[in-house]
């Protein structure tokens, strides 16, 4: 006993000593937090070096500093903010419309056999049409107005949210539902206390997929048919050979995508804190 206790004690002592000074280091200096950003920072540095030494022609690939400069200028003139805001509004409203309808159909078809029989086959057929293939038709219908972009984004976002909501409700543990019934829950309580929380992890998966499709659809739609927005800004820049603005637009898309993903993660961690898989994700 004494033999086994001794090394345990010595192991605890240095651990305590090491933990003591940590609160003094600000969290952003914590090496484990900086780790995910090491690779992007390295790529940008290497890229700048390659551009400065003439290894890569700046006609095709502008240096990061040029991109930053283009960003600064666009921000100064206000052009960037206008386009960013327009794109954001389109993305958000398209997502809310498509996601809302997807959620509603997912819930209805998950809870009611009749509703599922009525609509699921139709929805599955429509799902197999790539929504971007509708662009010519949508331009005919809506012109290059806001309606076209909203329609495409909503359509794209609809399916992942619909499919994952339906799947989530289907995969709620039937034993829990039986327990709820036996313990006297009515349909309403069963939905709010058992079915919906049980389906939530799957609904979040749909949410993240939907956000990805939202950006993709918006970029394509804005690139092909728009007179404002980030995609439009990039297309205009291409016509004038302003490669730095093109790259700027691409980087902004990447940043917005990452931002949306981080927001979802935050929401997941708050809503799904009961689930060990999300607690420290």
């Amino acid at each position: 006993m004494a033999d086994s206790a001794l090394p345990a004690l010595t192991r605890i002592a240095p651990a305590r000593a090491a933990r003591a000074p940590t609160p003094r280091v600000p969290t952003w200096l914590d090496p484990s937090r900086a780790l995910p950003w090491l690779l992007p920072a390295g790529i940008i540095l290497g890229w700048q070096a390659a551009a400065s030494t003439g290894l890569v022609s700046t006609r095709f690939m502008p240096a990061p500093l040029d991109v930053a400069h283009a960003g600064w200028q666009a921000a100064q003139t206000g052009e960037l903010w206008v386009n960013l805001w327009v794109s954001f509004l389109r993305a958000a409203s398209g997502f809310l419309i498509g996601g809302g309808i997807g959620l509603a159909f997912g819930l209805a078809n998950g809870l009611s056999r009749l509703s599922e029989k009525l609509t699921d086959t139709t929805l599955q057929m429509v799902r197999n049409v790539p929504h971007l293939s509708l662009i010519p038709l949508v331009i005919l219908w809506f012109g290059i107005d806001e309606g076209a972009k909203l329609f495409l984004v909503a359509l794209g976002v609809f399916f992942p949210i619909y499919a994952n909501t339906l799947h989530g409700i289907r995969s709620v543990d039937p034993q829990l539902i039986e327990m709820g019934r036996v313990y006297g829950m009515n349909r309403r309580e069963l939905f709010w206390r058992v079915v919906l929380p049980g389906a939530l992890p799957s609904i979040f998966v749909g949410l993240r997929y939907g956000l990805g499709i939202m950006w993709l659809t918006l970029i394509v739609a804005e690139t092909i048919a728009a007179n404002s927005g980030l995609g439009y800004m990039a297309m205009q820049a291409r016509e004038f050979m302003l490669v730095d603005v093109v790259v700027l637009a691409i980087l902004i898309y990447a940043a917005l995508g990452k931002l949306a993903d981080s927001l979802t993660r935050l929401l997941e961690r708050r809503c799904l804190s009961w689930n060990p898989a999300y607690r420290n994700a």
Binding site: Q175, M179, R193, L200, L272, W274
Partner: peptide
């Protein structure tokens, strides 16, 4: 009834799970 499996709601705290029994 008490089932073979605990059948607790994973998204409810222990006390809230017990309160399910109160209807």
């Amino acid at each position: 009834i008490m089932f073979q499996e605990p059948r607790l709601l994973p998204w409810a705290r222990v006390a809230d799970n017990v309160a399910v029994g109160l209807g």
